[in-house]
Design a protein around this nucleic acid. Structure first.
Lengths: 215, 215
DNA sequence: CATCGTATGCGTACACTGTAAGCGTACGGT
DNA sequence: ACCGTACGCTTACAGTGTACGCATACGATG
């Protein structure tokens, strides 16, 4: 009555790559990615730092696993929907996951990303445009633009100062307003920026622009 | 016959913040930002690591100086030009500088950025739209979209695998093509992507989308 | 010219990082 | 009952940012 062998026995939970990656994701979510060291992550799992290296090549490899985990968690839309609806759905979902795990953008910046989860995701996005009748060239444009737009907003919302930081620079607001009058005029919008809505606003412009090439 | 006192004497070049920041920029340009440690940067200036701290609070402070340096080096367009021409010019210039110093995107991701150089730059960009007659709300949209688009492409082009990396994964191309057929179809475009042109393509779409709100 | 405070560079030290190398042990298959 | 192997532990090392205290050389002053 033995299973595959890869399955953890019930009497004793041993470490494996997935458990390490998931713990890393959880740690980064709560403490931030910069705070995560191999020793701390090990401690979280009740294990010494070096033990992690039995399941992970590198810290970079662990990061790749984390990136892949997030891409794998992006819900994909029904392929039967119209391409515009699919694009909106996938964009929204991606932004949400990037928001949930804002460190991915940082990790993506630090190292490339060609794990299976990410390629799978990319393949699905690309298929939307190819299936809709875009040629390879325009599909590539679409991919690049969507990727940039999405990464850009995830990026912006990840670095955006929180209300605490805004409060801290409140005292010097008058001088700032004098030196940078144009910024001052849109300051209220900046302070209360809802990046999700902002993202969707831009997404519509992109979709419109792409649609005009479909004929 | 003494100057201000802040001016370096001619017989002896002493360190100052600008020299430190410029050396850091040069170092990051040639060796990459990850390779730059305070010790190595000190060595480059013929000085011990700790000496740098006389001119810089922190490594983060040094990073801020570097970011500000790059933003300050972005050439600004003639304010007399039409808003669309100004937007194109500033976008192109920004992309070029981000390309010259591809680590800025990484640094911006790591820490916010509210130095005088960056605020100055932002103020100028915002002024383009306000002067063109956009209201505060749409100006804010424009800023956010342009910033995302620009950061996104700088980001993409910074992480894009170089030809060496592509060559390395050439052998496994057949399996990849089988598993990710849609990606495979646009692979040639991905491999030869000219991010600058791609950026400009998207910029026109954005400009068109913004223009439709100007009435 | 002598003196002195201050600015700035240097040396040392500490806590922390990723990870290489080797050791011990407990499990699963025979 | 045995044994090979997978996996966790221990130790160690080079490298990081930076706090602290000392040394020196400069510009201003008497």
């Amino acid at each position: 009555m033995s299973y595959d062998g890869n399955v953890t026995t019930e009497t004793r939970t041993t470490l494996n790559r997935d458990r390490v990656v998931e713990a890393a994701v959880a740690y980064a979510d709560t403490h931030g990615i910069d705070d995560m060291s191999m020793r701390k992550l090990g401690a979280e799992l009740g294990v010494e730092a070096m033990s992690l290296y039995n399941h992970v090549d590198d810290k970079a490899d662990l990061f790749n696993g984390m990136i892949d985990y997030v891409f794998g968690s992006i819900q994909l839309p029904d392929p039967g929907l119209e391409w515009k609806a699919q694009t909106r759905a996938i964009g929204k979902e991606a932004m949400e996951q990037f928001g949930n795990h804002s460190w991915v953008v940082f990790l993506l910046m630090q190292q490339g990303n060609t794990g299976p989860g990410s390629l799978q995701f990319m393949d699905r996005v690309v298929s939307i445009f190819l299936d809709a009748g875009f040629n390879e060239n325009d599909t590539h444009h679409a991919w690049q633009m969507l990727a940039s737009h999405t990464m850009g907003y995830a990026f912006q919302s990840a670095v955006a100062p929180d209300s605490h930081e805004y409060a801290k620079l409140e005292p010097q607001l008058p001088q700032l307003a004098a030196a940078f009058p144009n910024v001052a005029r849109i300051a209220p919008n900046l302070f209360n920026c809802a990046y999700d809505e902002e993202y969707l606003f831009g997404l519509e412009i992109i979709i419109d622009g792409l649609e005009s090439r479909l004929n």
